[in-house]
């Protein structure tokens, strides 16, 4: 039998699915164009693996099938490569991403290749199932691929800080040299000039978790660092490498579980600042759900 059309269609579907998922990333990571080229190629390989599984099965080529499954395990390397790249670039970031965020990003990139394999496998299955339609089977296969890609992508969408918490502007002030945001002593700023910059250009916000689950999630240090990094990369930051005192700070109020963020954005736009905080992704590794446990329910 001739499976050329099946393999080409399904591999193309996997490739397109990977492309679609790349387009949905708003952080400009992977970088364009080299990073894109790497991931599109990997997506194509994934698509090819998913595409060949069905014909191999139909032809009872189980040895080939085993090799394909072995090849799929190679995608674990993707996570390592992404992690290494981001870790190597970490020292060039004005505001660090933090290891938790890096781990999250690396995991997403590994996952998306598996999603490309799923899409290709689905398309390949539908393509063979509708073999009696002749060349017209491209239509149901394309439809299946589209639905799968959108559905899988939707399922993989994580939450954002705005879903877990209320975000509001709070005034910042100085008590002598201590920077105070709401009830929280953030840090000590020794230089009068730096204090002036904070008063004139600084913005501060409170992030109030909506419940015990959100409170536990926001207490993660990696999540706090990710907030600082992402807000700084979205609204821009007013600092130079040797001006450590202007580093954005995220601190947690032990009484309420509220987070306080203070930073000096490059433009003092409150709405943009709040929107940026709400859009920060909730890290998968930071999510905690104490309410699902009995002791968690007892203390609530």
């Amino acid at each position: 039998m001739n499976y050329a059309l099946t393999v080409i269609t399904a591999a193309l579907a996997g490739f397109l699915a990977r492309w679609y998922m790349l387009r949905r990333d708003y952080r400009q990571y992977p970088s364009y164009p080299q990073g894109w080229a790497i991931h599109l190629f990997l997506g194509f390989i994934g698509g090819l693996i998913g595409a060949i599984i069905v014909p191999a099965f139909l032809e009872k080529e189980f040895a080939a099938l085993s090799f394909l499954l072995l090849a799929a395990s190679q995608f674990r390397e993707v996570r390592k490569v992404e992690r290494d790249t981001l870790e190597a670039m970490e020292s060039t970031e004005m505001v660090k991403r933090g290891t938790a965020y890096i781990e999250g990003i690396a995991r997403v990139f590994e996952t998306r290749n598996y999603l490309a394999i799923w899409v290709a496998l689905g398309v390949s299955l539908v393509f063979e199932f509708f073999a009696w339609l002749g060349p017209w089977r491209v239509l149901p296969a394309a439809l299946a691929g589209l639905i799968l890609a959108v559905l899988l992508n939707q399922l993989m969408q994580g939450k954002q800080i705005g879903d877990l918490a209320r975000v509001q502007i709070v005034p910042l002030k100085f008590e002598n040299s201590m920077l105070v945001v709401g009830p929280k002593y953030m840090t000590n700023i020794g230089l009068a000039e730096a204090r002036e910059v904070f008063v004139k250009r600084g913005l501060a916000a409170v992030i109030q978790p909506s419940g015990p689950n959100a409170k536990a999630t926001l207490a993660n240090v990696g999540q706090m660092q990710a907030i600082a990094h992402d807000v700084a990369s979205m609204v821009g930051i007013y600092m130079d490498v040797d001006e450590q005192e202007y580093t954005p700070l995220v601190r947690r109020d032990s009484d309420t579980g509220n987070l306080y963020l203070v930073m000096i954005p490059s433009e003092q736009n409150r709405d943009a600042f709040l929107a940026a905080i709400r859009r920060v992704p909730v890290l998968e590794g930071a999510v905690r759900k104490p309410l699902t446990s009995l002791p968690g329910k007892m203390v609530d």
């Binding site: 040299s177 000590n188 700023i189 020794g190 230089l191 730096a194 040797d242 450590q244 005192e245």
Partner: peptide
């Protein structure tokens, strides 16, 4: 303090 902070890449605390 400012000069030292800039030379050393540090922060001044009072």
């Amino acid at each position: 303090a400012l000069i030292l902070a800039r030379i050393l890449g540090g922060t001044v605390h009072d």
